[in-house]
Every structure is written in C-alpha cells, then in structure tokens.
C-alpha cells in the first residue's frame, strides 16, 4: 500500500454492516470525504457490535464488501485515500 492509501481491516471474524442500525442509511459511501475518527462501518461478532473508525482524514476510495457479508479477521474492508 502506498503512503497515500490506508486499508481498513476487520479486527475479527464477523458480519460487515454499512449502517449502525438496520433502518439507518450507510455510514459512508464511496467517494465521500471523511475525518479521522469518523465511524466507517460496524462488525458484528457473536452479538457484539464493534464500530470501526477511520485513523485518518481523507476520501473513501473503495468499499470492498457488501452489507451483511461475512468477513474474516484482517480482511480488507475499505480503502481510504489519506489527505
């Protein structure tokens, strides 16, 4: 990965959610500007919900998994272009 890009990894095996609740809109869309510490997505594992926050400010370059997809530990979920 180059210095300008940052990969958002899943901290554990679970289910990927793009929104914080079923009826809410997605937390981020591809192309959206974000600030460091913004919540990007939620991973559910064994009924525990973990919010993933961005480490950097930048732009969401790509979202690599679909809502409700199963994800593995350390799987790349999103690519953020740092700014």
């Amino acid at each position: 990965m180059s210095d300008t890009k940052y990969e958002v990894l899943s901290p554990l095996m679970g289910t990927f959610y793009r929104a914080s609740a079923p009826d809410n809109p997605p937390l981020v869309e591809a192309g959206q500007k974000i600030k460091a510490s913004d919540v990007l997505c939620v991973i559910e594992s064994m009924k525990i919900f973990t919010e993933l926050r961005s480490e950097y400010s930048g732009v969401v370059k790509e979202i690599l998994v679909e809502n409700e997809d199963p994800v593995m530990k350390k799987q790349v979920l999103m690519i953020i272009e740092k700014q």
Binding site: L12, M13, G14, S45, M46, I48
Partner: peptide
C-alpha cells in the same frame, strides 16, 4: 464462552 478473557472478553470465533 468463545471469548478471550485476556482481551476484554472479545469474541473468539474459529
């Protein structure tokens, strides 16, 4: 439980 007591009881699937 499948959880890790050394890591704040985080889930430990596998």
């Amino acid at each position: 439980n499948a959880s890790d007591p050394d890591d704040d009881f985080m889930p430990s699937p596998g």
